[in-house]
Amino acid sequence: MSDNTERNILVFGLTAPIGSKIDLLQDSLESEMKIYGYDVTIINVSNLIRDISNKFNIIEDITKNLKIDEKIKFGNKICEMTEEKDYLVKAAIKKIFNKIKKEEKEEDDDESGLKPKKSLAFIIRQLKRPEEIKTLKKYLVNNLYKFQQIMMNI
């Protein structure tokens, strides 16, 4: 990898009660990070359920939109089947590492060596379990900022 500059990586974990309007917090955070030049990736843990469910064959009709209670049910089922309460967040961490590896490869492919390293920000939304926060801290100890949204009626 080129030594042009250090890469700045920030990871934000958003938690909120079910049914909260977490989009406002996500959008605000994303806008601010872009102002400071960060390439922002949103990782929605609930949406990972659809991808992971193929592996475990737990969703019969993969094309239908899942309701909140169905996502919770399938998320719980995945964690039960794997015997890992943090399984879904591990899938999110894998996405983060894959994005970083992709950026590093693109930088390595730059023959001039002048391409600056992108600053990356990841927003992981819909963390639900304490085990998920612990796992994020374990893998991303210097890059995790946990925001907890209080239930707002907006």
Rank of each mutant, 00 (worst) to 15 (best):
D39S: 11
E80V: 11
D108A: 04
D61E: 11
E60D: 13
K101F: 14
K55V: 12
I100T: 05
E107Y: 06
K102N: 01
I49R: 00
G37Y: 04
K90G: 01
G75H: 13
E104P: 04
I96N: 03
E83A: 09
K73Q: 13
I68Q: 04
N76A: 12
V89K: 01
L88C: 04
N54T: 07
G75W: 11
F74P: 03
V89Q: 01
E107W: 00
F56V: 11
I52K: 07
F56L: 15
L48H: 09
D86A: 08
A91Q: 15
L88R: 08
K105T: 07
E107C: 11
M81E: 09
E70V: 12
T63A: 11
F74A: 08
N98Q: 13
I78F: 06
E70P: 02
K101Y: 08
E84R: 15
K105M: 08
K73G: 05
T82K: 09
K105D: 10
K71W: 03
Y87C: 07
T82D: 02
I93Q: 04
N57F: 11
D69S: 14
C79P: 06
K67M: 06
E80M: 08
I58Y: 07
F97H: 09
I59A: 01
K71N: 06
I58M: 04
F97A: 10
Y87G: 04
D110T: 08
I96Q: 02
K77I: 10
K67T: 14
I72S: 04
V89F: 01
N65P: 00
N54Q: 10
